[in-house]
């Protein structure tokens, strides 16, 4: 469903992604690990279409379509969701209002009826229960004054409401306490299906105990240097990234 070929991208005059290849099938969960500054968030942002990042080479197919040719909102409507590493605050803007507008543009795009306030609330209440989110959340401004963990939880909550085809989770586990981590992981697991795909960026093997990946990739210095099964994560936890310094080719 997602095919990344030789992707190069630069920002602020510096090349950050230096030839990424990645192929994800429907229903799979792929994890991306790698040292700080290796380009994990950059990959996530480039896939989501952040205008600051310039793709200099390569191509990305999303459900067979040229992803790089689409605006960020088109990508979102086509089913790509990014749970941000650092969700931004939008002061004063009501969370529920924002999410309803977002959901309805996506539904409209899919040719589905827009939800009215009642239907929306029914859906949202159900998702909030699943993710153990307090209703008061809804009436607060988007991420304003949220704790680090609450922001992350809000991202997963939004994802659960809009039900994307591809969920990219950028370090959603960082900042979550152990209970919250389990709740979030359960939420993601509940969404797993033969059609839905996840790309999970994390530093910690712990998350992958809950969200069990099909493939683990190691990203260093803008390249994927190693891919393997879920055991790779354990190995990394043990040995760190040092032993991977020399890219393995082939």
């Amino acid at each position: 469903m997602l095919k990344v070929r030789n992707l190069h991208a630069r920002v602020a005059g510096r090349e950050i992604l230096r030839g990424i290849d990645l192929s994800i099938q429907h229903g799979e969960v792929h994890a991306i690990m790698g040292p700080n500054g290796s380009g994990k968030s950059t990959l996530a942002r480039v896939l989501a279409g952040h205008p600051e990042y310039e793709v200099t080479e390569g191509e990305v197919l999303f459900e067979g379509e040229d992803l790089l040719d689409m605006d960020p909102e088109e990508r979102a409507r086509a089913g790509l969701f990014l749970a941000f590493q650092y969700p931004v605050e939008i002061p004063g803007l009501n969370n529920a209002y924002f999410l309803k507008a977002a959901l309805n543009t996506m539904r409209k795009h899919r040719g589905e009826e827009e939800l009215d306030a009642m239907e929306f609330m029914t859906l949202v209440r159900e998702r909030m229960k699943q993710l153990d989110i307090d209703e008061a959340f809804l009436n607060r401004p988007v991420n304003e004054g949220f704790s680090g963990g609450e922001k992350k939880r809000n991202e997963i909550f939004q994802m659960a409401v809009v039900e994307p085809k591809l969920g990219i989770l950028d370090e959603t586990d960082s900042g979550l306490d152990i209970d919250a981590l389990k709740i979030v992981a359960n939420g993601v697991n509940a969404m797993r299906s033969a059609e839905r795909t996840f790309l999970v960026v994390t530093h910690y093997q712990r998350l992958l105990n809950y969200i069990i990946p099909d493939v683990v990739h190691v990203l260093t210095d803008g390249r994927i240097v190693r891919s393997g099964g879920k055991e790779l994560a354990l190995e990394l936890e043990d040995k760190g990234y040092g032993w991977l310094e020399e890219p393995v080719r082939g």
């Binding site: 960020p72 909102e73 990508r75 409507r77 931004v88 939008i90 507008a101 543009t105 401004p141 809009v162």
Partner: peptide, 29 residues
């Protein structure tokens, strides 16, 4: 911020809707 607009666009909203929402949040009181 560019990042606020991008956040909204990542949720499927057009740039114009994003600006409107950010502004309406700003004026809420």
């Amino acid at each position: 911020g560019e990042d606020q607009i991008f956040y909204c666009r990542q949720r499927g909203l057009s740039t114009e809707d994003a600006v409107n929402m950010i502004v309406s949040g700003f004026c809420k009181e």
